[in-house]
Design a protein around this nucleic acid. Structure first.
Length: 281
DNA sequence: TCATCACCTGGAGA
DNA sequence: ATCTCCAGGTGAT
């Protein structure tokens, strides 16, 4: 049960990384790009499940990472409390669009927007007599009309989504290039897309492009830093996070939490949201 | 460079 | 029921 290879799907899926997952009977079903993933608990990664291994980042040296981030005592506590919580390696395009949609919205609402995009622009797949819709290809969203996007409830994000899809479709944004690029360069490139600022860029980098030093700083993360680390992160006081402040904070964060700060963030985020009884999916 | 403010929408809380 | 408020931010002034 406390084997380090055992994944707790409930913790993992309900930690704000993904939006298109549903628990159906005893299985968790999720959309990842063009794939439908179906997993059941207790879930243990075995070598044969190549796709699942990749998705759940089983290539990470988890023992080393958890040891490293547990040097911080609060993170260490969260690692024990949420044993089995993992970072996922999502389809980059889906992750990119998902977090662009997350802007000034709630998890429930984000999920609704994305589901409607899948139904309207994705492909229908069947599994065990149930219907699912995969995530749209970039060209489908790039060619969508604003009326169609608005009908999915995107609101002011419709323009962002269409422009972002066009950037991918035209090759201006190349995820495999970004995956190989260093953290800072990749961040700057993502931020050239309308609707992507520091926070959303960090989410995309952490959840789909293997940048484990990313530490998205949002309302919750700010709150966590202020509440538990008032001395170290005393610069989080103001409401607005300016560009300079964000960069400075990120430096301090990596200095304190280490090169796997992204994993730390995931445990802390889960801890604080649960503590405040916030809903997930 | 920094602080304010508007922004679509729908769910939760009063 | 009806209304207000706000939600994992960003872009424009």
């Amino acid at each position: 049960m406390h084997n380090i290879t055992t994944i707790n799907l409930n913790f993992t899926i309900n930690s704000g990384q993904v939006f298109l997952w549903d628990k159906i009977e005893d299985a968790w079903c999720g959309i990842n790009g063009n794939d439908l993933l179906v997993v059941r608990e207790p879930f243990q990664i075995v070598s044969a499940q190549r796709q699942a291994r990749h998705f759940f980042r089983s290539d990470d040296n988890l023992e080393r990472i958890l040891r490293q981030i547990s040097k911080d005592s609060l993170v260490g506590m969260a690692v024990k409390q949420f044993s089995g919580l993992r970072l996922m390696r999502q389809d980059p395009f889906q992750c990119y669009i998902s977090f662009i949609c997350s802007s000034n919205s709630s998890i429930r609402n984000i999920r609704n927007m994305l589901k409607r995009l899948c139904v309207k622009f994705g492909d229908r797949v069947e599994f065990e007599d149930r219907q699912f819709f995969t995530f749209p290809q970039a060209y489908r969203l790039a060619n969508a009309t604003s009326r169609e996007l608005l009908s999915c409830g995107l609101g002011f994000r419709a323009r962002y989504v269409r422009d972002a899809a066009r950037a991918t479709d035209s090759g201006k944004i190349d995820f495999e290039y970004l995956r190989k690029a260093d953290y800072r360069s990749a961040l700057e490139i993502l931020k050239t897309v309308l609707g992507i600022g520091n926070k959303i860029a960090d989410c995309i980098l952490l959840f789909s492009l293997d940048k484990l030093e990313s530490f998205p700083i949002d309302r919750w993360t700010q709150r966590i830093l202020q509440k538990y680390y008032p001395k170290i992160f005393d610069s989080v006081t103001g409401k607005s996070l300016t560009e300079k402040k964000y960069m400075y904070l990120h430096e301090k964060i990596v200095e304190h939490f280490g090169p796997y700060a992204g994993y730390s963030q995931q445990f802390l985020f889960k801890l604080e949201r649960d503590l405040n009884k916030k809903n997930w999916l």
